[in-house]
Design a protein around this nucleic acid. Structure first.
Lengths: 218, 218
DNA sequence: AATAAAATTTAGATTACTCTAAATTTTTAA
DNA sequence: TTAAAAATTTAGAGTAATCTAAATTTTATT
């Protein structure tokens, strides 16, 4: 069994590689785990010994099949708990991240399978992120970043890349919640800002930084 | 904030003192926490520094008000999660202890209050143990051990003192579940065994050890 | 009351994870 | 293509929780 801390490293590596098994850097991991690069190096050696990652000194890290599987199951737990918190306990989408971060480390396959059944085997969490099934398979929805959309293109908001409360509250204030239909009405050359219409009515301007963290289905 | 481990010691002390603030011994704690007495001594010093316990070297331990409050809140969390597991996820009463043991350390007052509401503010967990409210108050049901009952006395099973799966499965096999009405039909002098009738029908014999761990309301 | 047994504490070490500071390797850019 | 900057690793040390073995205190028993 992997420790709480090991699980957090695996999850960090998974997220940094965007699920694509892209090579991940020591500093990148240090940043998202709130540790120092030296501590990360120590842990990488340990994870490599346990055959959870492929690690080449100075060159970076990828997950092995075992490591990927472990990471995906932690993510499954995290997202199922988020659904429970929002659907059953009445939390808002910007309030669930930290609690799910703790709940995701509870280890019981039976618990998670039964939670999954109880929730009706949901396909996505409250932020639109897909939930893998018990074998670890995702049904991959094709998400596009708003920052990659062309002028005049339309789509439906289907997810976010950033789960912090500040960001999600901001989206809510702008009316940019899951399911909202948007269309790009103007691309500002100066700073990369984007103007878009909401459900064919109101118009909004968002910064490039915000646009990068909103996902749509076209 | 107290660590996972500190919380387990507080809970152990609470249970050993039977909620009565009776003095608890180092060896007693070592046994229920699966550690060695030397490790317990180290931790007791730490808990005393944090003013969670009253500790006199060689003489034993009681909880301070702060320590008692912390312990009661951990127990509240444990019991609420047990209700959730049985009522909503379909677990049996002998399957929930270990999972609740992990869930009880999740720290979020908001989570627990909302879980409490979601469950309908239950008064007892699946083993009949009372659940304190958010201020830490128990509505104390008067429980009597079957081993303390007199010949001819009747009562309704309302709780157990032992939560292991082996014990609970045994009770189930005998039909001795919560809510069952029993009457003492014979007290065996030889070994302290007790014979009782179930819902005025079947008769059962249980050992003194079993009788000590079943609670009834008279 | 003296001594043996039991309970408890101290001393010294170990494991998991973390850190700072210094050394090494890789990348970037003149 | 080489020097400076950035990234990474190593060395050495610290904290939390644990352990064994030895020392001390309490309790039980003659």
């Amino acid at each position: 069994m992997n420790s709480f801390t090991e699980e957090n490293y695996l999850k960090a590596i998974y997220h940094l590689s965007e699920g694509n098994n892209a090579v991940v850097s020591t500093n990148g991991i240090a940043e998202v785990t709130n540790t120092k690069a030296a501590s990360v190096t120590d842990m990488l050696k340990k994870l490599a010994d346990k055959k959870l990652i492929n690690y080449i000194k100075y060159r970076g890290v990828t997950l092995t099949d075992t490591g990927l599987n472990a990471a995906v199951h932690i993510i499954r737990k995290h997202r199922l708990w988020e659904v429970f918190l929002v659907e059953n306990l009445g939390f808002k989408w910007d309030e669930v991240h930290d609690i799910a971060e703790e709940l995701e480390h509870i280890n019981s396959t039976m618990l998670i399978d039964r939670l999954d059944d109880f929730l009706g085997k949901p396909a996505a969490d409250p932020h639109g992120d897909p939930i893998p099934d018990r074998t670890g398979n995702f049904k991959h929805k094709k998400h596009v970043k708003v920052s990659d959309m062309k002028l005049g293109q339309a789509g439906t908001i289907s997810g976010v890349n950033e789960h912090s409360s500040v960001f999600l509250k901001h989206l809510e204030k702008l009316g940019l919640t899951l399911g909202t239909k948007i269309m790009i009405t103007e691309l500002i050359e100066f700073d990369g800002s984007i103007m878009l219409s909401l459900d064919s009515k109101n118009e909004r301007t968002i910064s490039r930084e915000v646009a990068k963290n909103i996902l749509v289905i076209i």
